[in-house]
Write a protein that binds this DNA or RNA. Structure first.
Lengths: 114, 114
DNA sequence: AGCTATTGTATCGTTCGGCTATACATAGGT
DNA sequence: ACCTATGTATAGCCGAACGATACAATAGCT
């Protein structure tokens, strides 16, 4: 129970996960981490060394934008989806769906009876 | 149409794909390549530089075993699942299903109307 | 006979993302 | 005083997927 997914499984999907978390409302790094953790029932636990470089990449690609909030004593860096990011989210989600369908048809026979 | 999946999406799933292709009957490298290509409707096209190292890894892990067939003039290297490989296949398939469910719940809202 | 595409296996070096380890700082509880 | 949780960040390692390249036998065409 609560054993993490293999790292390589996440590869190529983490961007999509983070974009989807940011879709509903702005978040800061740590809250993204917690949300993902919660939404996946502890199966996705992004180490800081994964999360922050990822956010920097997304921002460099203009998929998200950020601003600092120092008003709360503890400094937080908030992130929000850009228009480009929203487009990317729907595009990536659609592609992921196709990919999942493909995998499903390949491995369907070897899945435990549901 | 027939545009390939991004490489990173495949990452961590390729092992599973190949194992599933080998589950029904033994195959040689080139036939695996073609089967996967066909089963995915051209969306998965494994380059030789990906496929052969992958097969060597699986064999080193004792998930598959191989033998040469030189009787047909053109030399082929056949691969078959080992008992360990079969177990790995079902385990990986189950894990993938969980992962897919997790992704689904995350991105479900941003999927095009089905 | 010569040419080309397909079949078939293999390795080298590059690229790039996720990870561990490390660093630093504030807040709250005991 | 100490420890945990919160919060952001970087450096360096590791390993898988890839493009390029190599080599060889076969099939089909003209």
């Amino acid at each position: 129970m609560a054993e993490k997914f293999e790292s390589d499984l996440l590869r190529g999907s983490l961007d999509l996960m983070v974009l989807s978390v940011l879709a509903s409302d702005p978040q800061y790094g740590y809250s993204i981490q917690k949300r993902l953790q919660e939404a996946s029932r502890e199966k996705v636990r992004l180490p800081a060394g994964t999360l922050y470089p990822l956010l920097h990449r997304l921002e460099a690609d203009l998929l998200i934008r950020s601003w600092l909030d120092s008003s709360t004593g503890r400094q937080r860096k908030w992130y929000a989806l850009t228009a480009k990011g929203k487009k990317r989210l729907t595009a990536q989600a659609a592609q992921w769906q196709q990919y999942a369908d493909c995998m499903q048809s390949l491995i369907g026979n070897y899945l435990p009876a549901s």
